[in-house]
Design a binder for these strands. Structure first.
Lengths: 131, 131
DNA sequence: ATAAACCCTGTACCCTGGTATAGAGTCAAG
DNA sequence: CTTGACTCTATACCAGGGTACAGGGTTTAT
């Protein structure tokens, strides 16, 4: 049911040191400790760390991840505020998706051009993401 | 028509040093030089640098950006190879888009839950990106 | 009851992606 | 023809996000 830091690291696919680092950065809550001082984790922590891992791959900084994770944390924050912040994040995400779709379109174009006859003088990839 | 490195930096919205750095990393071609040694850039470079900037925001490393940009570069590379690489990139991008949509869904859920009555005991954001 | 395999804290180090600075040359406006 | 703004190379430095010891205590399997 519970696990040590080494087991958590294996399950979540990260280095042990990374977990301690995230704890210092307050990206994950301080876990319960045994009398010996050993950290003890529940399965919830696996989710949380995987979330961080994925969000990072998507280009969010640890600071941004912190913002995402703490959106719902403080019960004192008024709802209207939480909603506002969530909506800001949402439009940020929409923007990212749009940009990724542009790059994808360019790659498809490149791939097709290639299939026909390879006369790729211009680079369709650059057309993506121009401003 | 052509511009100096300072003008390019301003147009593309980056630091001058960043441009020289990208040149060393071979993310942009070596520009033409005046007799004095000054670099001279065409408008093409603005596009290229903005592409790099955006791709970075989307979580691509400079190494990955290099791969994207050089996909169509070497005329010796056989078409089949270029297509294969493009397709790998495309499915990588699809994966990213899917993950972003998951996060977005969670944020929407959070925002809605908040709107109704604020009893947000569980964190819907964590549900996104599990696995 | 003793190794092997963990875990603890603290500190130092590493890589990526820049950014700054020094010391010297160039350009252009008055 | 000079002065201020720009550029050059080379080297040093910085922040973010980890990763790796060192020196010392736990756990567990035999």
């Amino acid at each position: 049911m519970t696990m040590t830091i080494g087991q958590l690291a294996k399950k979540a696919g990260v280095n042990i040191e990374t977990i301690r680092y995230y704890e210092r950065r307050e990206l994950i809550p301080k876990p319960h400790r045994r009398k010996s001082g050993y950290r003890e984790y529940s399965n919830e922590f696996v989710k949380r760390i995987q979330f961080i891992r994925h969000a990072k791959e998507l280009g969010f900084s640890l600071k941004e991840v912190h913002e995402l994770l703490s959106l719902r944390l403080d019960p004192e924050t008024p709802c209207s505020e939480v909603r506002k912040r969530a909506e800001v994040k949402i439009s940020d995400i929409d923007e990212r998706i749009k940009n990724l779709q542009q790059i994808k379109k360019s790659l498809l174009k490149l791939s097709e051009a290639c299939q026909r006859s390879c006369p790729i003088s211009e680079c369709p990839i650059l057309e993506a993401l121009e401003k």
